[in-house]
Nucleic acid binder design. Structure first.
Lengths: 201, 201
DNA sequence: TGTACATCAGTGAACGCGCGTTCACTGATGTAC
DNA sequence: TGTACATCAGTGAACGCGCGTTCACTGATGTAC
């Protein structure tokens, strides 16, 4: 069996990583299969050895950010995944709303880079998106005290605040305003979560 | 002077309204000029009597929602623009996060329908987007008490919460989850704004 | 009031181009002997 | 160890198609007389 299965899977992953970077930056429709394959060091035709349609790597790209996890490092706020509890939750809030994450379009969380594209996307794309959201909400919910809102509801609202803050910041043409939106979202998130007190990561 | 200036402007507005509906639903790239013109009851070529490029009506479509204002009516929560103060602010929060607004893709607030498209868009598109955001933030800021966060910062964070909540709800493939995100965002928005007490619109 | 005219909003064929996908191929590789 | 072979990942030309934009035109309209 020439070309091991491992080799093929490596190539496939390379294509998805490349696709993710391009989709994050320019959206689904404005990226061509040609571009993806060329950026991955391959040629057009090979794409269909790995995927049946253009939407297939798109759905995978949405969750591909999870592969990178412990390596992710925005603004020196290393996500220490051995940390637990409110400390980890706070780290996520802080890291999510950094200037680094704002600028890192390629490596950005797809919930920021692609929400409107996903809303129009195929079911498998929306399912991948949901998986990402649920992952974030779970970490938050596990670290919220009981309240008038259930931890899960509060966690979902927090996710909305983070994602919304970054999405608005990215969509605006004024850097000072973008910074201010980020800072405001961060402050409100820490305030309503009660994680202000757990120390600066 | 055949065809009055008023006639031309009417046609132009009709094109922008049609474009807005289509862009809201399918994004910038997936809508063709042909489609816009056909949906507006015209033919391809005439487009360039009104606009120089495809991006021109796109930028206008983002702010076109402001034209509709007092007529907008989501879930029976009529925005009564003679209302003022916290009452109006609360009305906006309530109306924004209704199921009606969730479902009304065509007439939706473009901040929800297009954030990632706008983030990749031309400067004039981002400027239009900012205008919309500032409009919402101003109404909020005018009705927030002084606090650890300035009214304006708090208003921006509230806008992020509303827009983020709806964007996430739309991007998810599970209706119950979408409802829950909306409700959670609404509850948190009312809680942190202090508008809970101003009565049910 | 009626008519001839000039304007320009709207038409639709045509342009060059890049897209997603298909397909016959080729050549690097792991395996059998 | 060396060689002949079968596999299939990767190649690149070709396909039909729809796009944004251009352009020569046409015909409905307001105006001048």
């Amino acid at each position: 069996m020439p070309y091991t299965a491992a080799h093929k899977q490596q190539t496939r992953e390379r294509i998805v990583r490349t696709a993710r970077r391009l989709f994050n930056r320019r959206g689904f429709s404005d990226v061509s299969i040609d571009e993806i394959m060329a950026a991955a060091g391959l040629t057009r035709g090979g794409f269909y050895n790995h995927f049946r349609t253009k939407e297939e790597p798109y759905a995978e790209a949405v969750t591909a950010i999870l592969w990178d996890h412990p390596a992710k490092n925005w603004e020196g706020i290393e996500l220490d995944f051995t940390a637990t509890g409110p400390k980890l939750a706070r780290q996520i809030v802080e890291a999510y709303l950094t200037r680094q994450h704002f600028q890192d379009i390629d490596g950005s969380c797809p919930m920021i880079a692609l929400p409107s594209d996903v809303a129009r996307g195929a079911p498998q794309v929306k399912a991948a998106f949901r998986q990402l959201l649920e992952g974030m909400a779970e970490v938050f919910a596990a670290n919220l005290p009981p309240h008038s809102l259930s931890p899960r509801d509060r966690a979902l609202a927090l996710a909305a605040l983070l994602v919304g803050g970054m999405a608005l910041a990215r969509a605006v043409d004024d850097e000072a305003l973008a910074d201010r939106i980020r800072a405001a979202a961060r402050a409100l998130a820490l305030e309503v979560s009660g994680w202000t007190g757990v120390g600066p990561h």
